Amino acid sequence: MVEETIALITGANKGVGRAAARRLAERGMTVLLGSRHLGRGEEAAEALTAGGGDVRALRIDVTDAAAVEAAAAWIGERFGRLDVLVNNAGISGSPGATAPATADLDLVRTVFETNVFGVIAVTNAMLPLLSRSAAARIVNVSSGVGSLAYMTDPDHYMSRLPGHAAYPPSKAALNALTVQYARDLRERGVLVNACTPGPCATDLTRHLGLPLTRTADDGAAVVVRLATLGADGPSGGFFDEDGVVPW
């Protein structure tokens, strides 16, 4: 008998997270669709379940310690373990309020609270459950703007984006954090990687004013690939749909 695979995706009621939930459910996984607002999560889960997958809504606000611990306790009671964790929840902050020279520090802190500290909180709460998996995988959904190489390459379009003190630094920090978790968890057999879905037309990116033609489903492909790595897969890397992304 093949044991079911349990996957948790944070911030999954829309965008890349929702698309990843659908793709993983299509692969036969039981997907826990994490959302700050349970009602929105339930709507998304119901729609995805109608397509034939096993998708269940779970309230989890990555900035709320009590909510994170409650989610971990529920997963433990219901399933006893977790096989895949996708840290997808993220916010960008208001671009106009995060220009480096005039940045609103409270807003910068808010962005880091979700994009960095929230990842630590959720990952650490889920580690006891992940340790019970035979093949645990952690995927941190980052961004190309977290690549210092891209942001400083004059031939790359990202180097011409306006400066921001919140979102790009938070994703660079997430990339660094990914490397540290990979080192820490290597002996446990947990593979930890970061990925960039690329410039997809979602609520997070529409304000950039870029001609975005890729969909959330396009962006979810690399998330799914890293969530389903074999035992010989990489750990501590940064990837997009084409392969390795430079730090």
Rank of each mutant, 00 (worst) to 15 (best):
A65V: 07
A65L: 04
A66T: 04
A67E: 14
V68Q: 02
E69R: 11
A70W: 11
A71Q: 07
A73F: 09
W74A: 15
W74E: 12
I75E: 10
G76A: 04
G76Q: 00
E77K: 15
E77D: 13
R78G: 03
G80Y: 03
N88A: 06
G90K: 08
S92E: 07
G93Y: 10
S94Y: 15
S94R: 13
P95M: 05
G96Y: 11
A97G: 11
T98Q: 09
A101Y: 14
D104L: 11
D104A: 09
D104K: 05
D106W: 08
L107S: 03
L107P: 01
V108N: 06
V108A: 10
R109Y: 07
R109A: 05
T110A: 12
F112H: 01
F112L: 08
N115Y: 09
V119Q: 01
I120D: 04
A121F: 03
V122H: 09
V122C: 03
T123V: 00
A125R: 00
M126Q: 07
P128E: 03
L129P: 08
L129I: 01
L129K: 04
S131R: 12
S131I: 10
A134E: 13
V139G: 09
V139M: 03
G146R: 01
G146D: 02
L148M: 14
Y150H: 12
M151A: 15
T152W: 13
D155S: 14
H156D: 05
H156K: 02
Y157I: 03
M158Q: 13
M158S: 10
S159K: 10
S159H: 15
L161E: 04
P162Y: 05
G163V: 11
G163D: 14
A165E: 06
A165C: 08
Y167T: 02
P168V: 01
P168Y: 00
P169N: 10
K171V: 05
A173E: 08
A173F: 02
A173D: 00
L174V: 06
L174K: 07
N175V: 00
A176K: 11
L177M: 11
T178R: 07
V179N: 14
R183Q: 15
R188S: 12
R188P: 15
